[in-house]
Design a protein around this nucleic acid. Structure first.
Lengths: 244, 244
DNA sequence: TAAGGTCTTTGACATAGATCAAGGTTATCG
DNA sequence: CGATAACCTTGATCTATGTCAAAGACCTTA
């Protein structure tokens, strides 16, 4: 949509799996150095996306998985009636596109919420490597299983009937994922609009706005535009019914 | 819970993957005869469960996947507050437990809704076989990916804000799955209570009951206890926003 | 730096579905 | 076969969140 200059240097784009700070979160987790180098030959293309650009769209033929290197993505479903539903947010170290393996076409569109970089992982080559490197097989199965769990967790989040519980659960999930990446669990920047949060949680933008106001009034969080500061992680956890 | 005599003959329990009528839906799909025999040596244990019996519970160590041979299962999450949430229903040919691969423990409990038979698939052995049989690797990845999709579809179902849409989507999903197994897509037996349907859809039992009454009054379906007959599949599809 | 657009906040009101309550039906098991 | 428990239906009322509306804050681009 908008064309925004991308400031990322070429160096970071050329960097290999071996030297990638995310390799503990991503595919090469637990691989030996030699195996990582093998994988590196497969994961050869890095791609830059500007904010608003699509990584792939519904119906595109499935060819590769994508590891988020930097930036932030949303995946969305397009309903028959034109309705858009956001089904996931993805941050660095997470792998996109595994749902398409079973149908050979992407079921969801994926869009960058900010300037981002992904690593292309051609799937045919990955499957070949998996046959050759047992520990890669092991890790890939865990990765897919983790995606199954992420989906179930989102569903449990949506099951919380009270809007407040859903938003609390959402904030906690972000908090956890930022923490896993070495960022502050209590202070972070929302990459998505209120509307996108509402869509993701099955609520309206107005409800999200009111909830942020209320949580702030109660002193649980501070929200200044997209900047969130969680003041009472424990109390926030207490608000969520079953999500963890 | 209740102990109900199981009438299934031993023969059907001993039957192999090769002769299993579900093998087009289950793991051995697309395998050669020799490879199916190899798989058969791994999938050696069949297990009977009476209605109300647990296949596994939250926290149990993960050791095997389970293919539903006959019967019907629900999987449920136990919230911190004692709240139970049903996260899935499973019918013959579907494979249970893949979410546990990534964490080595089962995250959800699984209970038989009627007398059932499952095939145990010890996971360590399966992973070994996958390294040996490329087409099994290919198929297993598709199977996991399919589970990712099932989760996303459930989520989209829950996103339909109107209760009516959710129930319609639920009925359609059952219809489709029965059809894929050679049963009538328009006439089938609900294996679960109204309460379980409500729980699964994020609605109360009263709402489910009222909806069935209304759909019946409108002539869309006939519901007699657990027996459902869909009179107008097209109109029912029209009711669902985005779920397809 | 100003104009335009996008995003957010807040208020008033409407409504779908939850909750509470009671009675009816069906299945289970001694 | 009859008692008991589990399950289901329907009605009356309440409430959280959606919807509609308007105004304010913030970013972007010229």
């Amino acid at each position: 949509m908008r064309s925004i200059p991308i400031k990322v240097s070429l160096d970071s784009i050329k960097a290999s799996c071996g030297s990638c700070s995310l390799h503990e979160l991503c595919l090469p987790m637990g691989l030996s150095q030699e195996d990582t180098e093998l994988l590196d030959q497969t994961v050869n293309k890095r791609r830059k996306l500007a904010r608003g650009e699509h990584l792939y769209r519904v119906g595109d033929p499935f060819q590769a998985l994508y590891a988020v290197r930097s930036g932030f993505f949303k995946t969305l479903h397009l309903g028959g009636n034109g309705r858009e539903k956001i089904v996931g947010f993805y941050m660095p170290g997470e792998v996109l596109g595994m749902d398409a393996i079973s149908i050979d076409r992407h079921q969801y569109s994926t869009m960058a919420l900010e300037d981002s970089i992904v690593c292309d992982i051609p799937f045919a080559e990955l499957e070949h490597l998996i046959g050759v490197i047992p520990s890669l097989q092991y890790h890939f199965h865990r990765l897919m299983s983790g995606d199954i769990n992420a989906g179930k967790r989102h569903m449990l989040l949506l099951d919380n009937t009270r809007a407040e519980e859903r938003l609390a659960g959402f904030l906690l999930s972000l908090s956890q994922r930022f923490a896993a990446r070495g960022y502050s669990p209590t202070q972070f920047n929302l990459r998505m609009t209120r509307e996108e949060i509402g869509n993701y949680l099955g609520l309206t933008i107005e409800t999200i706005s009111r909830l942020f106001s209320r949580l702030q009034k109660e002193g649980l969080v501070n929200v200044q535009n997209r900047e969130v500061k969680i003041n009472d992680l424990v109390k926030l956890r207490g608000m969520v019914g079953h999500c963890d």
